[in-house]
Design a protein around this nucleic acid. Structure first.
Lengths: 191, 191
DNA sequence: CGCGACGTTGATTTGCCTCAACGATTGTGG
DNA sequence: CCACAATCGTTGAGGCAAATCAACGTCGCG
């Protein structure tokens, strides 16, 4: 049985105690150590993961072997391969633990069942999706409009907590620049 | 009263005749001519728009005056400023008609009411959001991993219909390159 | 027809990448 | 707890993809 006090999970969702209990019974706890993988390319993506603690990242490895970080997952965020989970396809990304983590996983199948059973649960995730869409619109605009330097500034401003807890090369790969460039940008800022 | 045969609108949604009728009564038809604006920066974003016919684009104008196309809206797509509508903020983008268009608009307020009244309506849009998130994950990966040339190839492959019906400089601003570069990429391809 | 909008081409510049070397920091086994 | 290695971040030199600047041809429309 999972601790009902899952920090921010379902906070402000308006779900009843009983509904929360049903939902919590659908969650499975997962412990992950640094450098372990939650998901690798080619796997069927059947679950989405709530990050209770620690840090993960999802990334895509291109044909030249370069990796590109799509998403970080820190406390209270949900992470999965969203290019695949909704359509039932195979993962094109890897998800890697970069700080020892505690997660709660929820299967896509169970999720769909909960949507039918508990309308407020669907509302809750619909709103999550809305915020995610909004964030991606902003990120895309940043990628289109800003220089490497300004993308970094924007990132630090938006995600100060992430910036503190991940390696530089992870941030670089999120921003679409090299570690060398990021290093130079930071140097320039401290002067 | 709006024609109930709104092409692809709500196709496969499993909504009953009566529910569809309620929804259709919440839609208002809008006719727009080329070069007219549906929305401009700074306005409160209160509606989302279903494109029945024609073509629009949403774009952001940066501090240097360059414009960046975030989204095209063609037949059967929904368009709005998604950086603002969900959170109730002011538009940071413009939406411009680039081919005479017929739209149906739906207010955010009415939409929320319909979500409560008709659960299947919420499910329908939740799935739309899922596909939108998926598309943005892919686009972000393309922006991170691909060269100008390959982003263009990917765009043409993904949206052949759009490619035919908009100006080159619109595509360039969607891809984050200049018209000159796009011209050179196309030249190189035809040889 | 004539003008403005659009696309193309060339010359040059530039922001960021690549490659290489070298400190700094972290982790690990003895 | 130290020694050493591996990982990570920084710095410099040179190169390249795409931007910028500029000029010109073409198309569509009033």
């Amino acid at each position: 049985m999972i601790d009902i006090e899952l920090s921010g999970l379902f906070k402000g969702s308006g779900l009843s105690e009983q509904e929360l209990s049903t939902i919590h019974n659908s969650l499975t706890i997962v412990h992950l150590k640094k450098r372990e993988f939650l998901l690798t390319k080619g796997q069927i993506v059947s679950h989405t993961y709530y990050v209770y603690d620690g840090c993960l990242r999802s990334f895509y490895v291109d044909d030249s072997g370069r990796d590109h970080t799509l998403q970080f997952g820190i406390k209270d965020w949900w992470i999965s391969d969203y290019t695949a989970i909704f359509s039932g396809g195979k993962a094109m990304m890897h998800i890697e633990c970069i700080q020892d983590a505690t997660l709660y996983k929820l299967s896509r199948k169970r999720m769909e069942a909960l949507y039918l059973e508990i309308p407020a649960f669907e509302t809750f995730f619909r709103k999550k999706l809305e915020r995610r869409v909004e964030a991606f619109h902003r990120r895309t605009l940043n990628n289109l409009a800003l220089s490497a330097r300004d993308r970094y500034l924007s990132f630090v401003k938006m995600y100060p907590k992430i910036e503190q807890s991940v390696k530089n090369y992870h941030i670089a790969s999120y921003l679409g620049i090299t570690t060398e460039s990021l290093s130079r940008v930071r140097k320039e800022m401290n002067s």
